[in-house]
Amino acid sequence: MTVALVYPELLGTYGDSGNATVLVQRLRRRGQEARALTVHADQVVPATCELYVVGGGEDLPQELAAAKLRAARPLHRAVEAGSVVLAVCAGLQVLGERFAGPDGRATDGLGILDCVTERTGSPRAIGEILVQPAAEWAGQGLPVLTGFENHGAVTELGPGCRPVGRVIAGVGNHDGTVEGAVAGRVWGTYMHGPVLARNPCLADMLLSWVVGSLGPLDDTEPEALHDERARLGSLERRLGGPVQEASRWARLRRARSGQ
């Protein structure tokens, strides 16, 4: 099993390469063979990997990455062949129909996800985010997802894809209602963290789409991190930073208002 890390120089600003590390490690720890393949910006993305990780990045590199992926269409071919793709933030935007380029004008995406990303002038969405996954995935045991969002544009979903779930804390795609874009085996999300480091269950769900059911793992620390973030995410979002830093007065006010 090969996890391709696509253009980390262009799409890797927020530690999202960690998603590939987590995927590979979680298979290896179960005794299965797995390797991460880093595809640099001057290399051709192979269309034959089982799993692809596309990370977040800045405006200009994002446009370059989109141009490269549009030209050779490796992700199109991989998705048609049934590969799994995790696309985070700028990665999600690139996989959509259109996104806002460096000067704000509409730029063609890959059209793999039926969504459009635009800049509306609304303030940048920055902070902890919590998402209740849609019933389909919650029913498979996927708990509340935690992440850190940091994006300036908003994404509208078309009928061809569904959101990851409902936003509990944070902004998500647009206005605090829904987050992410999923179609088939392509999982698009605004959650950094990296998302799979914070949500081991999501990592296993994506892996199981490739290799089938997975045995248990010692997840003491990943689960402790997940639970800590799920517990503090809403409060930190409202306080605008870590609990330890908020003034006693602010904490008291929150406590009084029952939040």
Partner: peptide, 16 residues
């Protein structure tokens, strides 16, 4: 590792 305002609220850089 802290993630206060002066550190940045997002410690995902640890993965880099």
């Amino acid at each position: 590792i802290n993630a206060r305002t002066a550190d940045g609220h997002d410690p995902s850089w640890l993965w880099d």
